[in-house]
Amino acid sequence: MNTLDGKVAIVTGAGRGIGREHALLLAAEGARVVVNDLGGANDGTGTDAGPAQQVVDEIHSAGGTAVANTDNIATWDGAERLVQQAIDTFGDLHILVNNAGILRDAFLAGMTEEQWDSVIAVHLKGHAAPTHHAAAYWKSRAKAGEHVNAAVINTSSASGTFMPNAGQSNYGAAKAGIAAFTLVAADELERYGVRVNAIAPIARTRLTLATPGMGAIFAEEVPEGEFDPFSPANIAPLVVRLAHPECKLTGKVYAVQGGAITELHGWTGGTTIESDGPWTVRDLADRLG
Rank of each mutant, 00 (worst) to 15 (best):
H60F: 02
W267M: 14
F230G: 04
K143G: 00
L238C: 09
A219S: 15
D187V: 02
P201Y: 06
A236P: 15
V194I: 14
A52R: 15
P201L: 02
T112R: 10
V148K: 02
I217H: 12
W138G: 14
H123C: 06
A142E: 08
N170I: 04
G13V: 05
F107C: 09
G13Q: 05
I273R: 11
S156D: 06
I202Q: 09
Q84T: 15
T272V: 13
I153D: 00
V148H: 01
V184H: 11
S140P: 06
N234P: 08
W138Y: 12
L189E: 11
A158W: 01
A174H: 03
V8F: 09
V152G: 11
L25P: 07
I102N: 00
I217R: 04
L284V: 09
A260Y: 03
A62C: 00
V119I: 02
R81T: 08
N36M: 09
S275W: 10
G40S: 08
G251W: 12
A128L: 11
A186Q: 02
A255D: 12
A86Q: 11
L26W: 11
G193C: 03
A49L: 10
R141F: 04
S156E: 07
K125F: 11
T250K: 09
V34W: 06
A158T: 06
T89L: 03
A14T: 03
K7L: 06
E190G: 10
G19L: 13
A136Y: 05
W267D: 11
F227Q: 05
G126E: 07
A100G: 05
D92Y: 05
D37L: 05
D187Q: 07
A121D: 06
A66H: 13
H127C: 14
L96V: 15
A233P: 12
Y192T: 14
E114M: 02
T45V: 01
